[in-house]
Design a protein around this nucleic acid. Structure first.
Lengths: 138, 138
DNA sequence: CCTTAATTTGAAAACGATTTCCAAATTTAA
DNA sequence: TTAAATTTGGAAATCGTTTTCAAATTAAGG
């Protein structure tokens, strides 16, 4: 794999594009189309190589949809933060408690899995849960 | 997609095989190899078609690893399913342990939040974590 | 600057898993 | 038993991605 010792125009452009889309998941094809539109000269091969290199460095989040990989540039906002995100209203509860650290430890020891230092768990906040219960009786 | 109106030898054989491996995730290739060994006459195309049809009917669980789909026949849907999903290779670890129930309880009591009975936590599996450590030195 | 060596690029070909095509085979219903 | 409907499977196509390799670019040292 690339050692990325030279800083090329292509990489600068790609990085800029990813950074300006930090909240979106993009496929290699998405990026190619953007480059085409902007008359930036970058081959698909180079895009794939660059994305792979970012992946290896842990600088992107990855989503697998069917048979296509989507990449999102990671901006390290808060270092270790666990979030509860309400599926219904979008409310986010930030957590930083003992229980989550314990869970992380357990998963590492028993399941050999390194949980992201930042992750989201989905569900319903109190308000929305109550609303949903009410709705059932309608 | 197939309407599956005729009940063929191939489908009976495939179903039997999946059922007798209900706790394993199998790829189309795995199934092809099995059929080869057992001198059962089934083409790869038919295997894919059958798996797709099961998928549409919701009769299999699916795991995406790298670029290959793995299928597991669903016997009974277990109520609480927690997953650890590797960001890098897509591997899914199925969990069903005490610690997760405790976490759920804690979040409900202390944070008033109802975690989905089925959820995914992202991170890196052992293999990919090691790879990533190695890659950093390139 | 200029030269050279190391690295990177990108078009084309390869790749691997999956899907599509289509003629032949099988199944069902009558 | 026959005919129509459906299914099969090999070959070719597809799709996203990776590899290959000659040409272009970059960095580093005269």
């Amino acid at each position: 794999m690339e050692k990325r010792k030279y800083n090329t125009e292509q990489r600068k452009e790609l990085l800029l594009f990813l950074i300006s889309n930090k909240n979106k998941f993009l496929s290699a094809e998405d990026i190619e189309k953007y480059a085409e539109n902007e008359k930036i000269n970058i081959g698909l091969t180079t895009i794939y190589r660059f994305l792979n290199s970012l992946e290896k460095q842990g600088k992107v989040r990855i989503e697998l949809k069917e048979h296509t990989k989507y990449y999102q540039y990671i901006f390290e906002e808060c270092e270790h933060h666990y979030h509860l995100k309400c599926k219904r209203c979008g409310k986010i509860i930030h957590l930083d408690c003992e229980e989550f650290e314990e869970l992380k430890e357990h998963v590492l020891k028993e399941h050999g899995f390194v949980i992201d230092s930042k992750f989201e768990i989905y569900g319903l906040c109190e308000k929305c849960y109550k609303k949903m219960e009410e709705d059932k009786n309608e």
